Amino acid sequence: MGQSRSPLDVVGLERVAARGWRGSEEAALGEWLLRAGGGFTGRANSVLVAGDPGRALPNAVDAVTAWYRERGLRPCAQLPGRQARPADAAFAAAGWERDEDVLVLTAPLTSGPDGGVPVDLSPTPDDAWLAGYHHRGRPLPPTARAVLTNAEDVVFASVRLDEGPLAAVARGVVTDDWLGVAAVTVAEEHRRRGLATAVMAALQRWGAERGATWVYLQVTSSNAPARALYRSAGFIEHHRYHYRYASD
């Protein structure tokens, strides 16, 4: 992949990503997007701070807090790029705790060979797929399936090498001309065998068939092995975001 610059700015790409990983409930706060999904993942259970909330920032913080408290969720804000700095300061002033940086990486989409690893693609995740995806190292809650499937054009990739659990899984979604890749998980006993590269390639072929020309993904700043993998595949950093959480 080349080092071409993404055609979207921070807000534009975050709005695409928000359509690719949605909560089960959404509401607008000015240009901000409130999302709730039963507590599964920060992205589906945070307000996307992009644009103008239509009110003074301290009042916006209060409105976000109330919306999540009403749903029994810990209030959370996703704060991407420099445009979110004033809001970040307002959340910090209200005592919200900052999480680590998440890197949003992009690359022009390429459709290469399969590399000899059989990758199955399905429009829905079966029980084996759900068991293979450990979000932040934990089994998935019952609400996960609804969040994972809540997209217009989504696919679930899996690799089975033996009769045991799946060796690798990943999720792909096409939004406009962007492929979003997420949930890339390789079982510990099958790592360093090229399986993550194989599922990435399969998803890119799938995305290309649907007209995608760019691909994005997110990786935490502390995940050095994944960052190295994506760097070697030609991904470059587009921007960063972080979450802030209200005090319990």
Rank of each mutant, 00 (worst) to 15 (best):
G2P: 15
S6T: 14
D9Q: 02
V10Y: 01
V16D: 00
R19T: 05
R22S: 07
A36H: 09
G38V: 15
T41H: 07
L48Y: 10
A50G: 02
G54C: 14
N59M: 10
V64L: 10
T65S: 11
A66Q: 11
W67M: 01
Y68R: 04
R71T: 12
G72Q: 06
R74G: 04
A77G: 07
P80M: 06
G81Q: 03
A90Q: 01
F91T: 02
A92C: 08
G95E: 11
G95M: 08
E97P: 00
R98N: 05
R98A: 15
L103N: 07
T110P: 03
T110V: 15
G116F: 04
P118A: 09
S122A: 15
P123W: 12
T124C: 05
D127M: 04
W129T: 07
A131F: 09
H135C: 03
G137L: 08
G137T: 02
P139H: 00
L140I: 07
T143I: 06
A144H: 04
A146K: 09
T149N: 05
A151G: 11
D153A: 09
F156N: 03
F156T: 10
A157G: 12
S158V: 10
G164P: 14
A168Y: 14
V174H: 07
V174G: 10
W178E: 05
V186I: 11
R191W: 12
R191F: 14
L195H: 13
A196K: 07
A198S: 13
A202S: 12
R205C: 07
G211S: 01
A212D: 07
W214P: 01
V219P: 13
V219R: 02
N223K: 09
Y230K: 02
R231K: 04
I236M: 03
E237R: 10
Y241S: 01
